[in-house]
């Protein structure tokens, strides 16, 4: 474990806490893409298949449980809770995320560490996580105004993988045989997708203005 990876995990955890706060405090999921949340639930379920077979550390196991349960709770709440469900932007959350799932699965069948069920699904989860934010970014562009908690949620979510990139650089420099090309390249694509969001977020912060993404 290094400080970059720990900062990344904490930033990721904060993003989830901000989203839970928004949904439970405001009893609203307006501005949140259910499709992105469903993709994240799929990412964690397919990535942490080793939860009960490989014990890395208490921290690792705990965080996996937190990510799986929180992502499922958010999807369940957005689909099930009548009060929250009413605020879901159903008519603009229309990105066809099934294509993302299919594309990532085909890619995982072609590019993986080992051709085993667990490794192919692990690669699938890495590729899917890289593109899972797309329905959310599309929804924010369509909805125009972005409320503070939603903006902070996306900001922390984007920042976490940027910390992981620093972690991979650090591990590459300090560990003899460290090569994680699948995670590194996907992580770069994932962070790059947030580039324009980061830019408009910085502009709105600098001008102390409301965050608006151009359509």
């Amino acid at each position: 474990m290094n400080i970059f990876r720990f900062a990344g995990d904490m930033t990721h955890l904060i993003s989830i806490l901000v989203l839970l706060l928004k949904i439970y405090a405001t009893k609203s999921c307006s501005g949140i893409s259910l499709k992105t949340q469903e993709l994240y639930a799929l990412v964690f379920l397919t990535r942490y298949l080793d939860l009960f077979t490989d014990f890395i550390s208490l921290y690792n196991t705990l965080m996996k449980l937190v990510f799986i349960t929180s992502s499922l709770a958010i999807v369940w709440c957005m689909r099930g809770d009548p009060a929250v469900r009413r605020t879901y932007d159903k008519e603009i959350d229309t990105f066809r995320h099934y294509f993302l799932v299919l594309g990532c699965f085909v890619l995982a069948l072609l590019l993986h560490e080992k051709f085993t069920v667990q490794e192919v699904l692990w690669a699938f989860s890495i590729y899917l996580e890289a593109v899972a934010i797309i329905p959310q970014l599309v929804l924010l562009q369509r909805s125009g105004n972005v409320d503070n908690l939603t903006g902070q949620y996306v900001l922390f979510l984007g920042a976490y993988r940027a910390f992981y990139i620093l972690n991979w650089i650090y591990r590459y420099l300090t560990e003899a045989r460290f090569t994680r090309w699948i995670a590194c390249i996907s992580g770069l694509v994932q962070t790059a997708l947030y580039a324009d969001f980061f830019y408009y977020y910085f502009i709105s912060w600098k001008n102390n203005a409301k965050l608006k993404l151009p359509a």
Partner: peptide
Amino acid sequence: NSEDDLHDEL
């Protein structure tokens, strides 16, 4: 060795 095979990152 098995250590490398494990995905030790989240």
